[in-house]
Computed example of a mutant assay.
Amino acid sequence: MILNSVIIHEIRKEANTTNTATLYLSNSVLDVSNEYVLKIVTSLEESFSRKTLKRAKFSEDGFKEDFQDFTNIDIMNFSNVLTTKLKNNINGISQAKGGYLVFARYTTTQDFLAIFLVRNTEGSKLIPSAGSWDLDSTQYLDVEHFAMGTKINLSILNSESDDRYISLVRGNTDISHYFEAWIGLDDPKQENKDAQALYNIANQIDLPNGMTRDSLKRTIFDYAKSSTGKIVNLRDLSTYIFQDENYITNYCETNNVDIDGEFKLTGANLSRFYKVSVKANNIELTFPRSSFNPNEIEIIDGQVVIHSEELAQQIQSALNSNIDVE
């Protein structure tokens, strides 16, 4: 990780109170060469990557109301404006809590802007110092239990790509609607895109010993078909196949794969992991992938050859009966 800039602000507000939120805005960025600052961002990044993430793009409200250009972010102004906006947004929400807002720009495989809300609990408080923070105190920030977080892939956002560039932690009841509203998300489901991404992963990811591509796809098919609502959770699927909940998400992170952390896999999107369906010259074939072998179905000199006496008999019987073959 190459750390470019980091700044931390604090929103002070207790949950379940009508207290007005207050701010402690830093007037300077942190020293990115400081070991505690680097540890904070690295730990938050690692903790974030272990969560189930959803993908989205910006809507026209939220961040886009204040900033349209993300090519050259002034993190001081950017963070001041948005922290103040979040503070104002939660003033009327009794259950909303404050915390430290960590804004960080860094580069791993691509350029990212990350924002994490970390709770300021007893024993994990930062010490204010000259308009910023005592850097030694940052080691006590409870980064493993950050409440909310988002990562914006600036490389994708500032390109011509149609990929989703926002990752947001999902599956935590503490992630309140106001945090998503603050960011401003255009969040249409893209289950066809997610299914295609998973299919591509199945064709490319390193396999465990003894597993073939076809057996991997059949395992994905079995997992999705048996899950409630045919929901695929990438972390659960990774544990199911690889006995490592991070295996698939690590692959996605390394290869910049645009895929939601949880989505439905149904219909034709599901069937393709187990079946092959093709149609040409008024002939339609549907068969399990496992049937593509020299004993059942194969391609010889560019021609499809089906080894099935039973199928031949049914075709002949249908023709003899002068009915359409089904």
Rank of each mutant, 00 (worst) to 15 (best):
Glu298Thr: 00
Asn295Glu: 14
Ser137Thr: 02
Ile115Gln: 06
Val41Leu: 04
Gly92Phe: 12
Leu168Met: 09
Asp162Glu: 15
His177Met: 11
Val143Ser: 12
Ser238Gln: 09
Asp222Cys: 00
Lys51Leu: 12
Ala181Phe: 14
Tyr274Pro: 00
Tyr140His: 13
Ile220Phe: 07
Thr42Met: 01
Leu82Val: 02
Lys151Gly: 03
Val37Trp: 08
Leu82Asn: 04
Ile231Gln: 11
Glu60His: 05
Glu298Asp: 08
Gln95Gly: 00
Gln316Leu: 13
Ser5Cys: 03
Gly62Glu: 11
Ser238Ala: 07
Pro208Val: 01
Arg164Trp: 02
Lys189Arg: 12
Glu10Trp: 07
Ser176Leu: 15
Ile248Cys: 01
Thr107Leu: 06
Met211Gly: 01
Gln95Ile: 08
Leu126Arg: 04
Glu45Tyr: 12
Leu44Pro: 01
Asn153Trp: 10
Asn246Gln: 12
Phe112Arg: 12
Asn88Cys: 02
Asp214Tyr: 15
Phe292Leu: 09
Gly131Tyr: 03
Leu319Asn: 11
Thr150Glu: 12
Ser176Trp: 14
Leu198Gly: 04
Ser290Tyr: 14
Glu262Met: 07
Asp31Asn: 14
Pro288Val: 00
Gln68Lys: 13
Phe273Cys: 02
Asp258Leu: 01
Asn153Met: 04
Asn282Tyr: 14
Arg213Trp: 04
Ser277Cys: 05
Ala318Leu: 12
Ala15Thr: 07
Thr84Gln: 15
Leu53Asp: 09
Cys252Tyr: 07
Val32Tyr: 08
Asp69Lys: 05
Ile73Arg: 05
Leu265Trp: 08
Phe221Cys: 00
Tyr165Pro: 00
Asn269Pro: 01
Phe58Leu: 04
